[in-house]
Computed example of a mutant assay.
Amino acid sequence: MLRKLDNKNMGRSDLGWLKSIFHFSFSNYYNKDNMNFGVLRVLNDDLVKTNTGFEMHPHKDMEIVSYVVDGELTHGDSMGNKNTITRGHVQYMSAGTGVYHSEHNLGENTSRFLQIWIIPNEKGLTPNYGDYRFQWEDRKNKWLQIVSSTEGNAPIKIYQDANIYVLELEKNKEIDFKVREGRQAYLVQIEGISEINEIELKDRDALEVVEEDILIKARETSHVLVIEMKKGN
């Protein structure tokens, strides 16, 4: 099963310093029929103006992954961590029993990043933070796994049966992705235009995939992210 999600129909917010596209119900956007996709609870495509950001605020019982598309993202938290990541880099936070954090753009240009929340497989975990500076070329025309479960082999591990992959596919090239029985995936066309099983996706569109293999053909150089997980509502 494949279902295209046009970004024009997604939730939106414009606070001046922050412009967001909400793939699922979040903040001022509420749709009781669009709360999650399996264990994927939040996917926000955020644009943050320079010298602004999210001030210190709390989270609890959520696996939070941030993937930077452009610019800089500086993280700080109540555990004493402070780090800045840039394009193609990833930070992860297991909120667990509770943690406060802030996210700021201290760079010269607008920052764009994907904010991903995944429901953990248990509550009350010990809070944890990590970041990883992946090399851009490691995702060129091939899948780069950036996140896995704690039993997996990715550099970043989360407390859920879910995997995250990224890819930059050059124009006119193609690559497949297998979604086996009992599994599903949420694909985000971050940049460019691609054709997936004859469905066209433009930048910021998404695709739900359930128990079906897909073939991605890049009409333009395409930057893609896939969250693969166990099948669920």
Score class of each variant (00 low, 15 high):
residue 3 R to I: 08
residue 4 K to D: 00
residue 5 L to Q: 14
residue 5 L to R: 15
residue 12 R to A: 06
residue 12 R to F: 13
residue 16 G to F: 10
residue 17 W to K: 04
residue 19 K to Q: 15
residue 20 S to M: 12
residue 23 H to N: 14
residue 23 H to E: 14
residue 24 F to W: 08
residue 29 Y to R: 12
residue 32 K to P: 12
residue 32 K to C: 00
residue 33 D to Q: 15
residue 35 M to P: 00
residue 37 F to Y: 15
residue 41 R to G: 02
residue 42 V to P: 02
residue 42 V to Q: 03
residue 45 D to M: 00
residue 46 D to G: 07
residue 53 G to S: 01
residue 56 M to R: 13
residue 56 M to I: 02
residue 60 K to E: 15
residue 62 M to G: 01
residue 63 E to F: 01
residue 64 I to K: 07
residue 71 G to C: 05
residue 79 M to F: 06
residue 80 G to V: 08
residue 81 N to L: 01
residue 86 T to K: 13
residue 88 G to K: 08
residue 88 G to F: 04
residue 94 S to V: 02
residue 97 T to V: 05
residue 98 G to V: 02
residue 101 H to M: 05
residue 102 S to I: 00
residue 102 S to M: 01
residue 103 E to Q: 07
residue 103 E to I: 00
residue 104 H to M: 03
residue 105 N to H: 06
residue 110 T to E: 10
residue 112 R to Q: 11
residue 115 Q to H: 09
residue 121 N to Y: 07
residue 122 E to M: 13
residue 123 K to C: 00
residue 130 G to L: 02
residue 133 R to M: 06
residue 138 D to K: 15
residue 144 L to Q: 15
residue 144 L to A: 03
residue 144 L to R: 11
residue 145 Q to S: 11
residue 146 I to L: 09
residue 148 S to N: 02
residue 149 S to Y: 10
residue 150 T to A: 04
residue 151 E to K: 13
residue 154 A to G: 05
residue 156 I to S: 05
residue 156 I to Q: 06
residue 159 Y to N: 14
residue 161 D to L: 15
residue 161 D to V: 14
residue 162 A to V: 14
residue 163 N to L: 13
residue 168 E to T: 15
residue 168 E to N: 13
residue 169 L to S: 00
residue 170 E to W: 05
residue 173 K to F: 02
residue 174 E to A: 06
residue 179 V to L: 04
residue 188 V to N: 12
residue 189 Q to S: 15
residue 192 G to E: 04
residue 193 I to T: 11
residue 194 S to A: 12
residue 195 E to G: 01
residue 198 E to F: 14
residue 198 E to G: 02
residue 199 I to R: 06
residue 204 R to M: 09
residue 207 L to I: 00
residue 220 E to H: 09
residue 222 S to F: 03
residue 222 S to P: 15
residue 223 H to V: 11
residue 225 L to I: 09
residue 230 K to W: 04
